[in-house]
């Protein structure tokens, strides 16, 4: 338990380029924490839930604050792109409604002004709103080390609570989301105690409705397991069929069975089970 609102002392490293940051990551390994927006890290350091001799602060690296969209490349979000930037971006709003909704509902304006979208993923909190949307959208995280870059799909990115596939000598530099296809729609919903809050449950859905039936579905649910998870059994039920109320009820009951929520100060396991099902149903309906 913290006894201070003053951070513990650390050695601050301020790389001016990604390659410098990568060198630092290689040099200091698990003794170093990476700070982009810092809204999670500073609190963790203060509470003592993270300790770090070194902090690699990314803030002065030029060229990492971008949102680029290309028909071939899809959406690329730089490591220093704040959540506010995402909310203010029309491409995101138009093409990736699930992600835009997640960003818009996420935290308070002044947190969104400094917190980064990628940072929300790197925190690997099961309740991360951006994480949830990005998982449903089939995004990937670009990691860079001295050995070059590698792209890790979100599906393989979350290892456990607070733990990601990033190796200690790697720096996360970008989020990559596949380009939007005609007929692919998405939505995001979350449940909180008050509007400005961490999610007690969040749900993101992406459906390919380009044909007469649902070609493909991705359903991500957060705060119901140690990591944000996909409900693949429910996705399978949607594939190749027409969506109707009976199917939605069936999906809802599958969702309740597939998740492993816990009781905590924000909600109960029982409630999360009930409401995840409702939210998935509503999120799918919102796509139709």
């Amino acid at each position: 338990m913290s006894n201070s609102r003053i951070l513990p002392e650390f050695e601050l490293l301020v790389p001016q380029s990604v390659s410098e940051a990568v060198d630092m990551a290689a040099q200091y390994g698990d003794k170093a924490a990476v700070l982009a927006g810092g809204t999670d890290l500073l609190i963790m350091l203060q509470k003592g839930s993270a300790t770090s001799e070194y902090v690699i602060a990314m803030g002065e690296i030029e060229g990492l604050d971008y949102i680029k969209y290309g028909k071939a490349d899809g959406l690329r979000i730089g490591a220093l792109t704040t959540i506010t930037r995402m909310v203010d971006n029309n491409t995101v709003k138009k093409n990736y409604p699930a992600l835009w909704q997640a960003c818009k509902q996420h935290s308070a304006p002044q947190i969104r002004n400094i917190a980064t979208t990628l940072g929300n993923v790197m925190r690997a909190s099961p309740s991360g709103d951006c994480s949830c949307a990005l998982l449903a959208l089939g995004a990937a995280v670009m990691l860079e080390s001295k050995n070059g870059r590698r792209e890790v799909p979100m599906d393989d990115f979350f290892i456990n609570y607070g733990k990601t596939a990033r190796k200690v000598d790697e720096i996360a530099v970008e989020i990559v989301i596949p380009p939007v296809q005609n007929g692919v729609v998405s939505s995001f919903m979350r449940m909180t105690r008050t509007n400005f809050d961490l999610s007690k449950v969040n749900v993101a859905v992406q459906l390919d409705l380009s044909g007469k039936t649902c070609n493909e579905a991705r359903i991500a649910v957060g705060a119901v397991a140690p990591t944000t998870i996909r409900i693949k059994k429910a996705e399978a039920l949607l594939k190749g069929v027409k969506i109707n109320d009976a199917l939605l009820e069936k999906i809802a009951s599958v969702v309740s069975k597939e998740i492993k929520p816990i009781d905590d100060v924000r909600s109960t396991a029982e409630y999360r089970r009930d409401v995840s099902a409702v939210l998935v149903r509503r999120a799918i309906k919102a796509c139709l």
């Binding site: 105690r193 008050t194 509007n195 400005f196 809050d197 961490l198 100060v265 924000r266």
Partner: peptide
């Protein structure tokens, strides 16, 4: 304030 929730301006 993270977990003691009071109604905010939008609530």
């Amino acid at each position: 304030f993270t977990d003691y929730k009071m109604l905010g301006p939008s609530d």
